[in-house]
Design a protein around this nucleic acid. Structure first.
Length: 700
DNA sequence: TCGCATTCCGTTTTT
DNA sequence: CGGAATGCGA
């Protein structure tokens, strides 16, 4: 992309910039932030830093965490910011306990951020708007510098990005956006599809060019994609076409468990690689949630198939990395309270909860940042001598390195290495010789190397710029790791990529679409667009897979296959055996279908007598119920199928005293805790029932 | 204050 | 299941 843009613009790339909104405006704020009260060394807070700050504000004000948890509060505040609703306006709009409490925390959170000289992700867009509004001249400067503005994936822009684009393009009116409403998958984080839908109204002179020819995929894949997206009511009419070949059928793979699914994927990859001469780099495995990567990784690892995982707990999200980063942030920006709290007592140095509380109280009372309180330990009367000494030692450690960093005489990587050594971080990791600790230690070394490399390769590199860049790394940045490897990622991370062979795994009700997203039409349609995004990543071959059972929350859960599979054009799909896809178009109608026993027959407990992993066994228990057990391979987890309640299985038709007849969608837990999700027709919808209480009668 | 044990709790998806 | 938050004894 960057290359292509460069070719368009020519060699004179002065003033040109390619990247995300966030990193563009973070850099802009570095230069211009002082005009609205931020020094260039501001910290960038990720979601967990924000959460930490919010939790603290709630504690400070004695707010009941049962009403709103910090995590929820963080999300609510973030959404508000995405819609450009400030604390004052929020307070006016707040309705109900939760929102009213958030209304109380929101302004305090904003003050805390300010005091920490920190910006959260949302601020990186909001503050530039503030800046442009208060300083016309700055806006003008950038309008002149960036005479043309191009925005890709415009369907994923939010309100703030919309305003920024409008402002920047305000002078030259050279704005070009590319987007596809069918690929809008970020509504949950404030992306506003109306930005793209109303573009022609907002810019009446705009020319619209429809891109309806697909150069990527085979006819079969496009037919499948079309059949998916046409189920959405909310969309712009398009007719896609391609000159590409018909191609292979789309294959549907059915597995017994997530492990089985992973193995099937792995075998298929190796098979294609050998027979079709494909490389590992030609394959992508896509899934709905990051947790699903584990099973697939395991299968690939056992067979020595090289792979890379995009996203998930990425390198920079690991605890040990965040710890080191927190030390570095503190050097650069001592008022960064979230970072200070993170490491003030890690490794433990005698500054426990009580001492921290007292520091905090002192800071609040004297309107100081936490670090400023640390600097004045001697004045804090509530502290004993032992605590005072511990805090003093810590203060001197940080101050020593901060001044070293200030003079710039020591190379940043060397400074960082010495600091974490002195702070005891390295010896903490060497304390116990476990494999995990060794890995963590290596990760820390890798971070330092990354810092060294960054300093080497970047003009005017400082620790501060490094930290700001690192905070904004995206999944896509991780992707260009070289090497011939299978790529594993979430469907969200797959946006904008393409691969000869694509697997979309985990097509099960409750997982994809996610249970939570099935109630609201708009959310279900977003899930469907996500499915659309997934299948349109494929160039040559597409595999869809689902597993009859899957571990979730450490419990085994049985599943029915995703409703999306019942919706697709079955003419282009074949099962693994080469058979046609049998769809159950009526499965969501409650009235009872002629073939409704089909699922049930397949779910007969005997079905599971087939050994899942090679070393299973069976047994019986003493409660009078016959059970079939198998031990699930290396995990040693016991899989128990309870024949006593046996008939309540996915697919079974049941009757409830209040809701009437319905169809079991999934069953979770066992014994006392067993629950089932039952669909009672479109009026009632899905209900989650405890089998212990809900007396379900099996009918038919 | 620390360290261990126990309980609790959750999963979307991400800049 | 696994990580984080809480509780308790030393």
């Amino acid at each position: 992309m960057q290359e292509r843009v460069q070719r368009l613009v020519g060699d004179d790339t002065k003033g040109m910039w390619v990247g995300t909104f966030h990193s563009a405006f973070a850099r802009l704020l570095r230069v211009e932030g002082d005009k609205i009260g931020y020094s260039e060394d501001f910290s960038i807070y990720d979601t967990s830093d924000s959460k930490r700050l919010i939790r603290q504000q709630m504690q400070g004000r004695n707010l009941d965490r049962d009403v709103v948890k910090p995590r929820a509060a963080q999300r609510m505040i973030s959404s508000a910011k995405n819609e450009m609703i400030g604390p004052r306006e929020y307070a006016e709009l707040a309705r109900g306990d939760q929102q009213e409490m958030v209304a109380e925390v929101y302004p305090a959170y904003e003050r805390a951020l300010k005091q920490a000289n920190a910006l959260d992700f949302d601020d990186l867009l909001l503050k530039p708007i503030e800046l442009f509004e208060q300083h016309e001249d700055v806006l003008e400067k950038y309008q002149r510098r960036w005479t043309h503005v191009h925005i890709d994936e415009y369907q994923d822009t939010n309100q703030a990005q919309y305003v920024l684009a409008r402002k920047l393009a305000g002078r030259h009116k050279n704005l070009c956006v590319v987007g596809d409403d069918a690929q809008s998958i970020y509504a949950f984080r404030g992306a506003d599809i109306t930005n793209i839908l109303n573009f022609e109204q907002d810019y009446p002179d705009a020319t619209t060019i429809r891109l309806e020819r697909n150069y990527r995929s085979t006819k079969n894949i496009i037919r499948l994609a079309d059949s998916i997206i046409e189920k959405n009511d909310d969309q712009i009419e398009k007719s896609l076409w391609t000159d590409n070949v018909e191609g292979e059928y789309v294959a549907l793979m059915e597995a017994l468990s997530e492990k089985d699914e992973a193995q099937k994927v792995e075998r298929r990859i190796r098979d294609l690689q050998l027979r079709e001469g494909l490389e590992y780099g030609d394959f992508a495995v896509l899934y709905r949630t990051n947790a699903q990567s584990r099973a697939i990784e395991e299968a690939l690892r056992t067979e020595n198939v090289a792979y890379r995982v995009i996203g998930g707990t990425s390198f920079y999200e690991r605890k040990e990395i965040k710890d080191v980063l927190a030390y570095l942030k503190l050097l650069v920006n001592p008022n960064d309270t979230a970072s200070l709290q993170r490491i003030i007592n890690y490794p433990t140095r005698g500054i426990g909860d009580k001492t921290q509380e007292r520091l905090q109280r002192y800071a609040q009372q004297n309107n100081l940042s936490l670090w400023q309180a640390v600097e004045r330990v001697e004045e804090i009367e509530t502290l004993g001598t032992r605590a005072e000494r511990a805090v003093g030692t810590f203060r001197r450690l940080i101050a020593r390195y901060a001044s070293k960093a200030g003079t710039g005489s020591t190379p940043p990587d060397e400074l960082a290495r010495d600091l974490i050594q002195d702070a005891g971080l390295l010896s903490e990791l060497r304390k116990e010789h476990t494999r995990e600790n060794l890995q963590r230690w290596e990760n820390v070394q890798e971070l330092i190397s990354a810092l060294a490399e960054y300093v080497e390769s970047t003009e005017e590199a400082t620790i501060s710029t490094f930290l700001q860049e690192v905070a904004l790394l995206t999944d896509q940045d991780e992707a260009d790791d070289e090497g011939d490897k299978v790529t594993l990622m979430t469907l969200h991370a797959a946006k904008g990529t393409e691969y000869p062979v694509v697997f979309v795994a985990g097509l099960e009700e409750g997982l994809f679409p996610l249970e939570k997203a099935t109630q609201e039409k708009s959310e279900l349609e977003e899930e469907r667009r996500l499915f659309y995004v997934g299948v349109t990543r494929a160039e040559q071959r597409l595999y869809l897979s689902w597993a009859r059972s899957r571990y979730r929350y450490g419990e085994q859960q049985s599943n029915t296959r995703s409703r999306f599979l019942e919706e697709v054009d079955s003419d282009v799909v074949r099962t693994e055996a080469g058979g046609e896809l049998e769809q159950q178009t009526d499965r969501f109608k409650a009235g009872g279908a002629p073939d409704s026993s089909r699922d049930y027959d397949e779910m007969d407990p005997h079905y599971y007598r087939q050994d899942l992993s090679g070393d299973g066994g069976s047994g019986s228990s003493d409660d009078g119920l016959r059970r079939i057990e198998s031990t699930d391979g290396d995990s040693g987890r016991r899989v128990v199928y309870d024949e006593g309640r046996g008939t309540i299985v996915p697919g079974a038709r049941v009757e409830h005293s209040k809701f009437g007849q319905g169809k079991v969608q999934s069953v979770e837990g066992e014994g006392e805790k067993a629950t089932a999700v039952v669909f009672f027709g479109s009026d009632v919808g899905n209900k989650k029932l405890k089998l212990k209480y809900a007396k379900l009668r099996v009918v038919g």
